[in-house]
Amino acid sequence: MQNSHSGVNQLGGVFVNGRPLPDSTRQKIVELAHSGARPCDISRILQVSNGCVSKILGRYYETGSIRPRAIGGSKPRVATPEVVSKIAQYKRECPSIFAWEIRDRLLSEGVCTNDNIPSVSSINRVLRNLASEKQQMGADGMYDKLRMLNGQTGSWGTRPGWYPGTSVPGQPTQDGCQQQEGGGENTNSISSNGEDSDEAQMRLQLKRKLQRNRTSFTQEQIEALEKEFERTHYPDVFARERLAAKIDLPEARIQVWFSNRRAKWRREEKLRNQRRQASNTPSHIPISSSFSTSVYQPIPQPTTPVSSFTSGSMLGRTDTALTNTYSALPPMPSFTMANNLPMQPPVPSQTSSYSCMLPTSPSVNGRSYDTYTPPHMQTHMNSQPMGTSGTTSTGLISPGVSVPVQVPGSEPDMSQYWPRLQ
């Protein structure tokens, strides 16, 4: 039975679970980093996980050691009161100082060594604690504590007292930064006198190289990059290397530039699409467009005044059976039934097929058609009795279509119309 579990990581490298990497692998990681390889490249070359490479390099940059820390136990506290007071002093002298600059000053002034120097995250935590204590304490208590930490007896009751030896409130920041720059020169002199001055200088240079600022491109470089971006948004590694040799930039910087440029292009394309949609959409909808001609068919113009009344309900007709019959029939052209047409008796099958359309009241044959006459024609229609054979009435077949029909004066039988409509 094995005491430890061995495995293979996602890159194909072998590791022992819970145990640190061998010293030979750690040394190779540092050597590759000094030669300029990126952590992701080191991870692929040595088949070590990216997190492990970053952790080893980060500890090497901070402490200069590649040895693993002790497994188990607690780390001794490195942010001692003396170190905290120095950090507060540096922050007062130059409020814009960075944590890694404070760390360098602690090393250069001999406050800490490589073994007990606090990390950048520890210094940031100390600065946050100082800021929170400043908010919790009152103004007087804060000034007393700062005077105690600074070891001075001057008056701290006013704002300019934060910067000793100065009279203009805006000047101390520059003086403090100048003092810090002077301390940086002392850093070089002190570290050069040490035993491991060369190694420390190499480590600091490598650290500065990794902690780079934003790349500033010249106009020629920007023009070359934009020209390549117009050709393709995704250049391959050969195109990037050719462009890197042409404009004297690292291939990694060119790759990052193209990634950022593609993101910018997507944002601009989104804005262009929004403007295009806004320009195509009308600002207001016309009133006429809300009524579609496919839904509402136009009603033909009436030929006679009587045809303006298109349904039985508008003429005072309360018989719903006839109203439904007229509205359900398709529109037909106007025609006239003459008196000489043969009077065919209704076929029983045809009569039964339209039995649902006729009223059940037996008085329908005896009703006159003056009910369908509009009010303004009552006088004219009353002067001509319906009993004469020459009287013409208008029957409504569908809305908007008038059918003048000659009705025999002897017997106005409704059943004569249905064979004609089939």
Rank of each mutant, 00 (worst) to 15 (best):
Q89C: 15
M148S: 10
I117R: 15
Y60G: 01
S24N: 12
V84W: 06
P81A: 08
I97F: 12
D23L: 13
C112M: 03
D41L: 04
A79R: 04
G58T: 15
D144N: 10
V84D: 00
K75S: 04
R103C: 06
R92W: 10
N3L: 11
F15D: 00
C52P: 00
Q10M: 08
G110C: 12
R125I: 05
S65R: 05
R26P: 01
V83Q: 01
A37T: 11
R105M: 12
K28C: 08
S24G: 10
R19H: 05
K86V: 08
N17Y: 15
K28I: 06
V111M: 09
N150P: 13
E109V: 08
E31L: 09
K86C: 14
F15S: 02
P22H: 05
A70E: 06
E93T: 13
D115M: 11
I56Q: 01
V14G: 06
I71P: 15
H5G: 13
T80V: 07
R38P: 05
S4V: 11
E82V: 12
L149H: 14
I102C: 03
C94T: 13
A70M: 08
L107A: 15
S119I: 01
V30A: 07
G58L: 10
M148T: 15
S65M: 07
L11A: 06
E101S: 08
Q47C: 15
L107V: 10
I71F: 07
L107E: 10
L127K: 15
L21Y: 07
S85M: 10
Y143E: 14
S108L: 13
G13M: 01
Q10L: 07
N116G: 08
S119M: 05
D140R: 13
Q136G: 12
R147I: 14
Y143F: 13
S65D: 08
C40A: 08
D41G: 04
V53A: 04
A99W: 02
A131H: 09
R77M: 04
V8D: 05
K28F: 07
F98V: 07
S132C: 12
V126F: 00
Y61F: 07
D41W: 05
G7F: 07
G73V: 02
H34F: 10
D140C: 09
R147Q: 12
Y90C: 12
R19C: 06
Q27I: 11
Q2C: 12
L46K: 01
S6A: 13
N124P: 00
Q27M: 15
D104R: 14
H34I: 14
R103W: 04
I71K: 14
R19A: 03
D144C: 09
P76T: 04
R38A: 05
R105V: 07
G13L: 01
G18M: 01
S54T: 09
D104T: 10
G72E: 03
G73I: 02
D140M: 12
G7D: 08
L130Q: 11
V84K: 11
R77S: 06
G51V: 00
K134Q: 12
V111E: 05
P20L: 01
R125Q: 00
K91R: 04
S121T: 04
N150R: 11
V84M: 06
L21D: 00
S4Q: 13
T113W: 09
L106N: 00
R19V: 06
T63Q: 03
A99I: 03
V83G: 03
M137N: 10
E31I: 05
V53T: 03
